[in-house]
């Protein structure tokens, strides 16, 4: 099959996202394996297409509203017209619902959470994270076209940059009047600690069990000169403000120390902290995915370790 491989380029506030560049790098590899052209679809001003030089060709349409409805309608129309064999879509809050909706419109499969993709006897097989990253599934589609939701971080964004200028074709899309209208952005609350600026972060997850136990983390953070942050379940419970969330929907952080208390390491969380310089995880579940990411692991009950650790840190700091 010589039909092209596509990526959906994502823009955020007028810029091509890092994830788009990562997808370009992955897409280039896969397109070369399949010996087909790599094409990027860009719903933005064509001036942005110049940063997509890793692709052979950019299909560009301006004037598509940044809503899942409009992007999905435009993407589905182009897929129908031009018949790519597959479309790689960023598995991000920004693009996942547009990708899934486009697949639904096309009656096409949408493979979620792909962390890698390769050609196997001419067919694409995705390696997908399921069950919060506890298992991986090798998934292939039985029909074409197929859309793959590709996780951030599959390749380095640098591998998706090129000096080359791709061929650019402006295409027309007819997006019907949609019933979802963008109104405005709400910025994160300020005034709280900026966790992206901390050298030390103590991260709490579901394993902290209740709000009162956050004191343990606060104590450690104070001793280490840092701040407390959390994974999704802790934020959802209202135990920490949104400004302290690390991960896909929250902040991306790169502290010198990321000390994790009872965080299992769902892919959404790992996305936001994998670049920390030193990652230490305490978790009672020996099979927790976080132990595949952390530099040091402690398979123990945090409620037994943290009080002793706090005492010893106090002693070490005082001595």
């Amino acid at each position: 099959m010589t039909s092209p491989l596509w990526i959906l380029a994502e823009t955020w506030r007028g810029q091509i996202t890092e994830t788009t560049l990562e997808l370009l790098a992955l897409g280039r590899e896969v397109a070369d394996q399949l010996r087909v052209p790599l094409e990027a679809v860009l719903f933005a001003d064509k001036s942005l297409a110049t940063s997509l030089g890793v692709a052979d060709h950019v299909l560009c349409a301006a004037g598509v509203e940044p809503t899942p409805e409009a992007v999905a309608a435009a993407l589905a129309q182009l897929v129908k017209e031009r018949q790519p064999q597959a479309v790689l879509v960023p598995w991000t809050n920004l693009s996942m619902d547009a990708g899934a909706l486009a697949a639904a419109k096309l009656n096409a499969p949408f493979v979620n959470g792909s962390k890698d993709l390769k050609a196997d006897a001419g067919r694409l097989v995705a390696q997908c994270l399921v069950y919060g990253g506890k298992l991986e599934a090798a998934v292939a589609a039985t029909v074409t076209p197929v859309l793959f939701g590709v996780l951030p971080g599959t390749r380095s964004a640098d591998a998706g940059r090129s000096e080359k200028t791709p061929a650019i074709t402006e295409v027309a899309v007819a997006v019907p009047e949609t019933k979802v209208k963008f109104q405005r952005f709400l910025e994160p609350e300020t005034g709280d600690v900026d966790i992206t600026q901390q050298d030390v972060l103590v991260a709490v997850g579901r394993g902290i069990q209740q709000q009162d136990n956050l004191e343990l983390a606060e104590g450690l953070a104070k001793l280490l000169g840092g701040a407390v942050c959390g994974s999704r379940p802790v934020i959802d419970q209202g135990w920490l403000p949104l400004s302290r969330q690390v991960g896909k929907s929250g902040m991306s952080v790169k502290p010198k120390l990321y000390l994790m208390l009872g965080v299992s390491g769902a892919p959404e969380h790992i996305e936001g902290m994998k670049n920390a310089q030193l990652i230490v995880a305490i978790n009672t579940d020996a099979a927790a995915p976080i132990f595949n990411v952390a530099h040091y692991g402690i398979n123990a009950d945090l409620f037994e370790v943290v009080p002793v650790l706090t005492e010893k840190l106090q002693a070490a700091k005082g001595g």
């Binding site: 991986e136 090798a138 998934v139 292939a140 197929v146």
Partner: peptide
């Protein structure tokens, strides 16, 4: 009809693992 097939389900093959403090 399903449009995907799962060829394999497995625990992640990890390239690295934390050094465990015991």
């Amino acid at each position: 009809a399903a449009q995907i097939e799962v060829r394999q389900l497995a625990k992640p093959v990890v390239s690295s693992h934390a050094e465990m403090l015991e």
